[in-house]
Amino acid sequence: MAEETMNDFMDEIDKSLAKGKDGDGFIWDKLHALLDSGEYVDVEVTEAVKGGVVAFLEEKRGFIPASKLSLSYIDEEKLPEFVGKTLKVKVITVDEEEDKLVLSAKDYLKEEADKKKAEAIAKVQVGLVTEGVVESIQNYGAFVKLENGTTGLVHISQICNQRIAHPSSVLKVGQTVKVKVTAIKDGKLSLSMKAVDEIGAEEVTEEKIEFESEGEATTSLADLLKKAGF
């Protein structure tokens, strides 16, 4: 028991000496360890400065650039809104000589967004026909956001049956369209508007055939009645 007490006592002395002799270096070591591990830690934003905000970690003043605060662009005038908020950040730069510590909240937000995206895509099945909104238009096609929040690409060749020079000749941003999920690969959705039109055409053809068959049956019955003298 006495030996354990002595060991504990010596450990406390070693810690005290480490802090007293080179406490600042001890803190930088911890920051380097966080950098290497990629661990997320909680920090509170204390002030807004030009180009970002400030938060203290391990007693060191850390800078979070505006570009690392959110997944979307943050205006300079919006930076004060982050003061007082607690953010989950990752250490991305540690420079002891320059007394520089840079943090990022964007990494955690992106990781969480990717998880939600993967969960949403896992619920989508090939062959699903649903509605979506055109988010953006590119030379090669259009990106459509589905009702469950996932986004897929409608290639230019899958927009309509006619050949078009550019997707904008048929689509516009914000337009609601009906699409069919044709493939899911590496977490990406391939969509088709043309396939939905083809499904509609098939249904119309089937209805027409069914109607004509019923008409033939009716006519045949009328002829039989006429021949029977009714």
Rank of each mutant, 00 (worst) to 15 (best):
144 V>Q: 00
201 A>W: 01
154 V>T: 10
208 K>Y: 05
195 A>N: 03
142 A>N: 05
171 L>W: 09
208 K>W: 07
189 L>W: 06
153 L>N: 04
155 H>S: 14
169 S>Q: 13
210 E>P: 06
214 E>Y: 10
157 S>P: 09
220 S>E: 15
165 A>C: 03
143 F>G: 03
167 P>M: 02
145 K>R: 14
146 L>H: 04
150 T>D: 05
157 S>I: 02
168 S>M: 14
193 M>L: 00
189 L>G: 03
181 V>W: 02
166 H>Q: 10
169 S>M: 12
147 E>N: 02
155 H>G: 07
153 L>F: 06
179 V>I: 09
195 A>K: 06
148 N>G: 09
177 V>L: 02
217 A>D: 12
154 V>C: 09
146 L>N: 01
171 L>F: 08
146 L>Y: 06
190 S>F: 08
189 L>K: 00
195 A>F: 05
215 G>N: 12
188 K>H: 10
220 S>L: 11
180 K>T: 09
150 T>C: 07
209 I>F: 09
162 Q>F: 00
187 G>F: 05
213 S>F: 10
187 G>K: 06
196 V>N: 05
151 T>G: 04
155 H>N: 15
178 K>M: 01
193 M>W: 01
187 G>W: 06
188 K>A: 10
205 T>H: 10
151 T>M: 10
168 S>H: 10
201 A>R: 09
173 V>N: 13
210 E>I: 01
218 T>E: 14
219 T>Q: 12
201 A>K: 12
171 L>Y: 05
165 A>M: 08
144 V>R: 02
211 F>A: 15
156 I>M: 08
204 V>L: 11
171 L>A: 01
205 T>Y: 02
209 I>Q: 13
178 K>Q: 09
146 L>I: 04
169 S>K: 12
152 G>L: 06
161 N>A: 11
186 D>P: 01
166 H>A: 12
